[in-house]
Design a protein around this nucleic acid. Structure first.
Lengths: 226, 226
DNA sequence: GCCGGAATACTCTGAGCAGAGTATTCGGCG
DNA sequence: CGCCGAATACTCTGCTCAGAGTATTCCGGC
């Protein structure tokens, strides 16, 4: 089991809404959406209702009343408990203070990148760089609009963080693509050669049985010592 | 349903191993571990075996033989199919070329950060910065050791990416902490005041019914126009 | 030669969660 | 005044996957 009884970050968002005032689940979802929090916290109804149920089971929130406006379906209004407030503050503090290992999809991609030839990888990463630029443009436009509407940085800080990380990724990718294209990336020749040989029908075992013969001096570097 | 029949990145890693040569599941896990890929791709046995089963169901891999060495339990050796090779290349290409929205835990934390008073947030983020520095040191030490053992960048690239992103996060956090502490962060006074008032028993509604009275001129900025 | 710990090689279980589906009601437009 | 689409407000289903548990075997030390 993970540290928290309810692990989904959406539960933290629910607690943060209910810390302001009692609400019913759909109102929680609308509030989060209005404030743009669904950009940072994945929100879907399936999860929302099961998360609310789980929070109630653990007495972090409690049902207040079931009201009905007009002929609309019944809605249960929930309020946060003292235990819920404590959990919210403790959880949020942990989130801010403690880095956790996150498995980024690009990290997986880079880890397996030798599975494609270097020129293909360079082309694909080039495409990624272009797409990142488009995304950055969209984020910037959104920020400008938000500021024009008088929104302060306090409510944009998560988006500013996102922008910062996107820009960092772009910088890394552009450097990597440049090195792959220029040949400055060490071992790129041998890496390309491996794919040529495999296309000719050689197996990995055959190639690495005598790397220097098949790949040249650079091939030696592909085989870790010890 | 998501685009891939088998969605777990671990499945991609399995395909990448079997693209080299047939293996049995436990050998796949050892191979990934040896190469340090479990730093970038979450690997646990429960997932591994269900992922292998799913890949087989979709004819991306197929069972070759069940062998037994000595009295060890039976092991099923799997080989990749042509469909599996196609899926591997297509999937990897997508991973490299197409950014996907990932929900970072810090992004969630920052989005909900107004739920704690600014001085507390600054302290917590300061702790995070310290921890990030420790992590960066560990990654650097690991890289030095890997290079000393003759490992080329090709097999470290995902770790270099990770390092780059950690450093970027650190830079963002340090700037943010400095702005919070110096008061350069817009709205920080009003934000602190909201928490004081709440501690005195006022509700959010009461405070925001007349923000300028409770929070001063700065309070106006906390209420978005329109 | 026997004991303990590491390595080998999985299996089981159940909670969580995503995505799709459903039913109702409101508001605006022709 | 009737229709259509958007908004409201959920419910259901099934699959994934994490974590813990299990059994065997090898190996090194005493």
């Amino acid at each position: 089991m993970s540290r928290r009884r309810v692990n989904n970050p959406l539960a933290l968002a629910v607690l943060s809404c209910l810390a302001e005032r009692p609400m019913h689940p759909y109102e929680i979802s609308s509030t989060l959406r209005e404030r743009g929090k669904e950009q940072s916290i994945k929100l879907n109804y399936g999860s929302l209702y099961s998360v609310v149920e789980a929070l109630q089971r653990h007495r972090l929130i409690e049902a207040r009343e079931t009201e009905r406006a007009g002929k609309r379906p019944e809605r249960t209004v929930y309020a946060i408990t003292q235990a819920g407030i404590d959990e919210f503050e403790d959880w949020l503090a942990e989130l801010l203070s403690t880095p956790v290992k996150e498995y980024l999809s690009l990290e997986a991609g880079l880890a397996l990148m030798p599975g494609l030839p270097p020129d293909v990888v360079a082309r694909l990463l080039g495409i990624r760089a272009d797409r990142l630029k488009v995304e950055l443009g969209a984020v910037d436009a959104m920020h400008e609009q938000a500021r024009a509407q008088g929104l302060v940085d306090l409510f944009l800080v998560e988006s500013l963080y996102r922008r910062h990380m996107l820009a960092a990724e772009l910088a890394f990718i552009e450097k990597l693509v440049a090195d792959l294209r220029s040949g400055a990336f060490p071992g790129v020749k041998a890496w390309a050669r491996v794919h040529e040989l495999r296309a000719e029908g050689l197996s990995m075992e055959e190639i690495f049985a005598d790397p220097v013969r098949h790949l040249g001096e650079e091939g030696r570097a592909l085989v870790p010592r010890e």
